[in-house]
Structures are given as structure tokens and as C-alpha cells.
Nucleic acid binder design. Sequence first.
DNA 1: GGGGAGCGAGAACGATCGTTCTCGCCGATG
DNA 2: CATCGGCGAGAACGATCGTTCTCGCTCCCC
Lengths: 193, 193
Amino acid sequence: MTDLATDRDRIVAAADRLFYARGIQSVGMDAVRTAAGLPLKRLYAEFPSKDALMVAVLEHRSGIWDAGIDDAAGRAPTARDKLLAVYDFLDGWFRDDDFRGCGFINAFGEMGAVSPAVAEVARAQKESFQRYIAGLVAELGAPPALAAQLALLAEGAQTTAAISGQPDAAAHARAAAEVLIDAALAAPADTAA
Amino acid sequence: MTDLATDRDRIVAAADRLFYARGIQSVGMDAVRTAAGLPLKRLYAEFPSKDALMVAVLEHRSGIWDAGIDDAAGRAPTARDKLLAVYDFLDGWFRDDDFRGCGFINAFGEMGAVSPAVAEVARAQKESFQRYIAGLVAELGAPPALAAQLALLAEGAQTTAAISGQPDAAAHARAAAEVLIDAALAAPADTAA
DNA sequence: GGGGAGCGAGAACGATCGTTCTCGCCGATG
DNA sequence: CATCGGCGAGAACGATCGTTCTCGCTCCCC
């Protein structure tokens, strides 16, 4: 049973690396098998189809993201610092050599129209992130619209860092977030049309 | 010659529709041929490979984007209004029934690691957009960092509207942009560490 | 020790991909 | 009117995809 879980993990980890690095459709199941070092039969015993493997990979990646965010926020004392820690977390990630954008955005763009399951996992991950930000914004006593704005900055930073190759997108997002947070706290009650 | 140009345009338009709607690798050259209503031979006479067609499609899409932005900005009197018009333009786009995110982000995520040509066209388009924003920001007399921040909001709005399916991402981005612009104009000369 | 169940390794299958080739028709030219 | 070049339509090709099947070994139970 532990062996099965280990095999499963090895498959997911190998597929995640390959899918993220090359895109999903560019990676054949044979490449996943080779990278995982397991017979194809076991791979299909764990995942009935490539679609199921894609979903498992994205869910695994979602867990890694959550852990990274939680870890970064854990070292920050206040809600405001926790919010800003998100951008510091992004900054470190953007500087990874194999950074290639947000895996969920990439997967959605490639497979979203063709695989409803993939689209749904991506949507759920983005919603979960927005909820996380919204919680901190509420804790801060700022209006909910701020959460949507801060999330936009994080999303934009990911695509900009990926395509333009500028890791300082995280610093720009962080600076903008500071301004938005301060402005929201200064005038907490109204939204301009 | 005009006929050749027309055929080329029909191919690019058909491929653009299909690639954007379903993703690039999910669309075969045969589907493009059928949609364009042309023999496969002529398709390959115009574009030596699918990679070349992808590049042409993205360049075509880049022209459409530029025209849309220019049109929206043209109806705005001041630099500030032109900057905000970008988000109004996005708002209208997000409400299209067939909106499925930024074609360049999608193409980059799917093909960027596998086709350097696609990655380069996507990068060039994002750079061109950043330059456009930077020009308006300079005209406004605000520090250059504001341009990067405003671009992040636009990018983030596109992915959020696509994945979460919330067209109001444009309105959130616009509201945040107003705050950032006003703050930048109030204190134009320094950047916090 | 013998037999059978289970698993590793990889061949095989049908489908589909990007790309090329063949065939048959058409209009222009001497 | 006969001939020939060029183009439309689609078959064909090799490669590769996701998925399944076969073979042969090994390990466990009686």
C-alpha cells in the first residue's frame, strides 16, 4: 500500500516535471513512464488515462503552491506582511532556473477548452488563492475589492515573469500592492464608479 | 497576388479562430484546411510548416490587439484616460462569448518551451504592450515603475477573467489602476525599498 | 518441488498527426 | 483542335500518440 502510494507519487512528480517544462501535449505517456522508472502497466493501473494523470499533477502542484504560500506567510507577523509575503514568495520562484510561468495558467490555456477536468482544477486553484487573499484582506479590515486587486497583481506578475523573463515583476507587484493596501485602509468604505 | 494575399488571410483567420478556441496542438492542419476552404497544397505553399503558421497567426493577433488598444485610446482625451481605456477595452473583450484568455499567454504556455519562434512572438507582443503603457505613463509625468504595475494589472485581469470566468476582473484592474496612477502622481520621485 | 498468480518489459494496435505525392481536370497556347 | 502546365481534391506516408496485450520470469503457497 505504501509502495502503491510511492509509485503514484513518483509518477505524479515525474509527470509534473515534464508537463511543466515542455507543456502537456508535448509529453507522451512513454516519456512519463521512462522518467518515473515504472512499467507502463503500473502507470495505467494508477491513472486510467492521461487526463486523470493531468488532474492529479495539477492537484499535486496545487498542494505545493499552498504549502509555499503558507510557509511564506507563516514567517510574517501581521496580515499586511502576510499579503506582501505572497509577492516575496513569487520573487523567489521567478528566479528558479526552470520557472516557466504558472502551471495552472499554462494547463488551462493548453487543455482548458478540450479537457473540462483540467479547466475545473485550474479554476479551483485560482479560486482558492483568491479566497486566501480575501481572508487576509478581511483580517486587515480593508474592503473586499482590495483582495481582487491584489490577486490580479500576483497573476499578472506570473505571466509577465514567464513570458518577458523579468523576475522583477514580483517586486513591481509588491510595490503596487503596498500602495493599494495603504489606499484601501485610508478610505475603507466606498468604491468609485 | 491579391488572391494570394486573400488566401493567406483566410488561412490565418481560420487558424486563429481554431487555435484560440481549442489550443494549438489540438487543431490539426486538416481542420485548418477545412475551415479555410482551401486545398492543403496551397496551405503549405503559403506556410512551410505549422510552426510558421502559428507565428503568422500570433502576429495577426498582435495587429488586432494593437488596433483595439489604439481605437480605445483614441477616444480618450488625456493620457490618464488613455491608460484607463485599456481596462475598458479589456472589459468588452472579456464579455465576448468566445473569450478564452490572452492568445499569447496561452500559446506561450503550450508551445513556448517547444517552439522558440512562438516564444519570441509572445515575448515581443508583451514587450510592445509594456512600451505602449510606458509611453503614456511618461506622457503623464509619472515614474516608469508605474507602467510596469499597470501592465501587471492588465495581464492579471486577462488570466483571471479567462480561468475564473469573471469579466469584472477588468473593473477591478481599472479601479486599482486609478489608485496607482493617483498615488504615483502625488509622490513622483522616489521608490521604496 | 511444482504450479499458478502477478508483475516487469516492451511489442503491438488503431488513431491521428504533419507533411508529401498522385491523380484528374481545366484553361491557355501553338 | 491537340497539348501541356498548373491547380484542386484527397489519398498516402512515416512518425508518434494514448492505450492495450503478450510474453516470460519470479515468487509464494501447498
